[in-house]
Simulated scan of single mutants.
Amino acid sequence: MLAGALAGTMGVPLIATSYTACQAAGHLGDYLAAMHGAVDAAIARAPSVFFLDEFDSFGRRSTGDHGGHYTRQVVNDMLQQLTRLHDAPGVVVLAATNAPELVDPALRRAGRFDLTLEIGPPDLAGLRAILAAHLGAAAPDAKALIEAARALLGQTGATAAAVAREALGLARDDTAPIGPAHLAAATARHAPALPPGDLWRMAVHEAGHILLAAARVLPMPKRVTIGATGGAAELPMPRFLTAEATLDWTAMLLGGRAAEHVLLGAASSAAGAGEGSDLDRATDLLVRMELEWGLGDCGLLHAPVPPDRRAWLPDALRHKVSVLLHEAEDIALDALIAHKTHLARIAKALATERSLDRADLEELLQDFDPTPPPEPEPTTRKATIVPLR
């Protein structure tokens, strides 16, 4: 969508291809011919936009798999084609990937791609604009657009465009102008409404992260949203962390779980729901502090552990990480209990609006005092170590 929008704004042709499209032509020679043909077209039709989708599919030359020779040929040829495009006046080159770490470093360096942008899901205003653009003059009233956009939070722009097309189709089936009911029905198919209990739990969970960020004087999120599949707070991780800062960020990551304890009486599985979850990221921070950064009890040691090997950590280290996680959760609980009114205020606003930006959060926290409450009496918590069999 971005490449098409850029080409449309510039009023120039879009030439789009991908590894899959070119590889479908046949063997290596056919692939190379297809890629050269796409590049030739972009240069011949300049000014133009040349778009490479699935950029990570081209692979990395450093991999030692059985297809390494093929991958080297593909990547080396792509380097040559990018040089041709760079030297051709009037060609803007874009590439998209969901896994930038899998792209060969030589393909990413300056001179081939001068700018890297991380593009997340569109916000409320963006979703509303996408719906309005695809519905055109047939769009229903502004209230219906906002309600549909709010329900689509967390979805991609492509999903919003699909909802608009489906709403137009439903209206055609009814031989009637498109109305709020058509848009609501199409939206519900792509983003079913959340049960009220789930919506409130998500709002409480995300409010916990926000309040912990404020309590530990961490950067405020750019935006926090609740979509059909869960909540997300855009918190920029700093480049460097001290041991103290690592514990602060761990407490923030466990703030959602702690907030569920404070306002709902018990935590749910949300904090540990798979790879990239709050508990996964918190555990990763502490393991890296101990084994990579030289900031823990293991001393000056650099021994990275892949996430899928964490279960085989020595019992003593597992115990240490578990104790630190409990310590961070205690920090989170103390802060949220002390500021329970602010926690509930943020959760209610988030449950209603489904999306809050930094200005909204600052307004909700304008009377917030991050000064920590008096230290409670020390308590001892013992982590339970489950032996691996």
Rank of each mutant, 00 (worst) to 15 (best):
D360H: 11
L253F: 10
A228Y: 04
L102I: 06
A138M: 08
D104G: 04
Q80V: 15
W293P: 05
G37D: 14
P105C: 06
V93D: 00
G4M: 05
P47W: 00
R109Q: 12
D280R: 02
A142V: 04
L285Y: 03
E292P: 07
N76Q: 06
A160M: 02
D104V: 02
K143M: 12
N76C: 04
Y19I: 10
R72H: 09
P192Q: 07
R128D: 11
L212E: 02
V287S: 01
S355W: 02
W312F: 11
C298A: 13
L364Q: 11
Q80H: 14
K348I: 04
A185D: 12
L285H: 08
A38I: 01
R358C: 02
T283G: 03
A42D: 03
A96R: 04
L14E: 08
R223T: 07
R216V: 11
L131V: 03
T380Y: 13
G120T: 07
A335V: 03
E54A: 03
I331L: 15
L199H: 09
L361D: 00
A267E: 08
A44G: 07
G157A: 07
T9W: 15
T156Y: 00
V386T: 13
V92E: 01
A162T: 12
L313R: 02
L145R: 02
T17H: 04
P238G: 02
A33S: 12
H66S: 15
R60Y: 08
S62W: 06
E244F: 03
V103R: 03
V386C: 10
D77E: 15
F240N: 15
C22E: 09
R112T: 07
P370L: 11
R309C: 09
A24D: 08
E327S: 10
L199Y: 08
R281A: 10
M202K: 13
G59D: 08
Q80C: 14
A359P: 01
H209V: 01
F113N: 05
L247Y: 08
M252K: 10
L115T: 13
D315V: 13
V49W: 05
A158Q: 04
L361S: 01
I385M: 09
P192A: 01
A167V: 06
G296S: 03
G126I: 03
P373Y: 09
S355C: 07
G231W: 01
L115G: 08
G68N: 15
I226T: 00
